[in-house]
């Protein structure tokens, strides 16, 4: 009696293991098919000119060439744009985090008057198309003599990043017990020091998510930088792609190397901070 039951269990677990193996296999196939474009940008950036222009497409480069990468990374125009990309991304990250975190905390912790309307303001902003702000901001920045600066795209990008932080981070602060705050006050903190010393460190998972996404908002921006900064020397990499394509025509290995350099930071950030990104996004970005 007992023996047959054990036998049954073994058979079942054998089937479960087989099923899991199969699912792992399917998962791998999905990954290969779905991520093929990433493979393609990577290997294309290592192809020689001869291979890029060859009519028979090579799915594996016959000889790896570092020429496109070296070419980009030693080009002055490229390096300037790369620097602009970093400056705009970091500026947006700083600006949005300072404004966004404080607002998220204030809206979660205090009986702020007009809370409902303020939350509505942030939620509606998240839905707005960039093109709605583009024309008025362009005219405002023209009037203020702010075209071709780091400030113009940064200020515009932050109108999207600040609401993102408020909506993502507020649930974090809401979920912290109020007694924490009160204990800090008894120990001599005021509202501000308790925010900086107690709340921020505790909400760091959410905070890292926000920092990452604000960096990416700035790094990935195309439309604001392209519209406000006409001078190529003030444009980030994304906005200079077209100028660059005129220069290289159909040398797609060069173009793919250019694109890869824009993707590398994203992948690095993602690989090192995956748990923060997925955890932070799903706890705040969507509600059930």
């Amino acid at each position: 009696m007992v023996k047959t039951q054990v036998g049954k269990l073994r058979a079942v677990s054998g089937r479960v293991i087989a099923k899991r193996m199969l699912m792992n296999l399917i998962a791998l196939l999905i990954a290969v098919a779905f991520l093929f474009p990433l493979y393609w940008i990577l290997i294309s950036s290592f192809k020689t000119d001869v291979e890029i222009f060859n009519k028979n497409i090579a799915y594996w480069p016959r000889d790896f060439s570092f020429v496109p990468w070296v070419h980009q990374l030693t080009d002055n125009d490229f390096l300037f744009s790369l620097r602009n990309s970093f400056v705009i991304a970091l500026l947006n990250m700083t600006l949005s985090t300072v404004f966004g975190c404080t607002a998220a905390y204030g809206l979660a912790r205090f009986r702020t008057p007009g809370k409902k309307i303020i939350m509505l303001l942030f939620l509606v902003t998240q839905m707005m198309p960039g093109s709605l702000l583009l024309t008025p901001l362009y005219l405002m920045f023209t009037g203020a003599g702010m075209l071709n600066s780091y400030a113009a795209p940064t200020l515009a990008i932050a109108t999207g990043s600040i609401p993102f932080i408020v909506v993502t981070l507020r649930p974090f602060f809401l979920s912290l017990p109020k007694s924490l705050d009160e204990a800090a006050r008894i120990d001599g903190c005021n509202a501000f020091t308790s925010f900086i010393r107690i709340m921020i460190p505790i909400a760091r998972v959410g905070l890292v998510t926000c920092l990452v996404f604000c960096f990416l908002h700035g790094w990935n921006d195309l439309v604001y930088s392209m519209t406000f900064n006409i001078k190529a020397s003030m444009r980030p990499l994304t906005a200079n792609i077209y100028k660059f394509m005129d220069k290289y025509g159909t040398k797609w290995n060069q173009i793919m190397a250019y694109g890869m350099i824009l993707v590398v930071p994203v992948v690095l950030i993602f690989v090192s901070l995956q748990k923060y990104i997925v955890g932070g996004l799903t706890s705040g970005a969507i509600k059930e």
Partner: peptide
């Protein structure tokens, strides 16, 4: 105290978003 925390972001959004929206 709450207003101190919320005000900077709200002011920012008023200048950089609500005003441009009305202007538009």
């Amino acid at each position: 105290t709450g207003m101190f925390f919320v005000l900077p972001a709200v002011a920012y959004m008023l200048v950089m978003m609500v005003y441009p929206l009305l202007y538009n």
